[in-house]
Amino acid sequence: MGLFDRLANLLGLKKKEVNVLVVGLNNSGKSTVINNFKREDDRCIDIVPTVGYNVEKFSFKNVNFTAFDMSGHDRHRPLWEHYYKDCHGIIFIIDSSDKLRLVVVKEELDMLLQHPDIAGRKIPILFLANKMDLPDSLTTVKLVAGLGLDRIQNKPWHIRATNAITGEGLQLGIEWLTDQIRDIYINKR
């Protein structure tokens, strides 16, 4: 590391690298959300179902995010756990209009929270209640109750209603996550 780098690091100017994991059921809008975080000219126009996972990079408030955008297909959900170990934050996306599969969401969430690589760590989780624009979408309050989010004790979490197509609510959500990660990982060092 050069002298300049060390100086910049000391002053907090150096950009921080963090990994976040983006999970959720299929068709909840994970890739669309990540697409929205990217710069205008990097965005792709049509989003297709992800097979496996995608790595995307974007930066927000001087923090460089590497997002592992996982496939939500039921066949691929068991593969999420391979990436739990070294992530600094989780973005959990819920399709708030899909009442039917809310139980599936809860099951997947519980499995994630109980995983040994996640359970003991203080790791911020950002819940995005996506598709808020749809007429019969659930409110965040109902989702908190439905998923039992209030029982999460050892991790900071935050829920926000979003619309990934227009980008509504996303900025505020990522801001919260960035602050949390800064608090937990960067300032501690």
């Binding site: 496996g52 996972y53 995608n54 496939s71 391979h82």
Partner: peptide, 12 residues
């Protein structure tokens, strides 16, 4: 096992 995990990355 589960090598299909990289499908999307490769198609990209």
């Amino acid at each position: 096992e589960d090598v299909i995990i990289v499908t999307s990355s490769l198609t990209k």
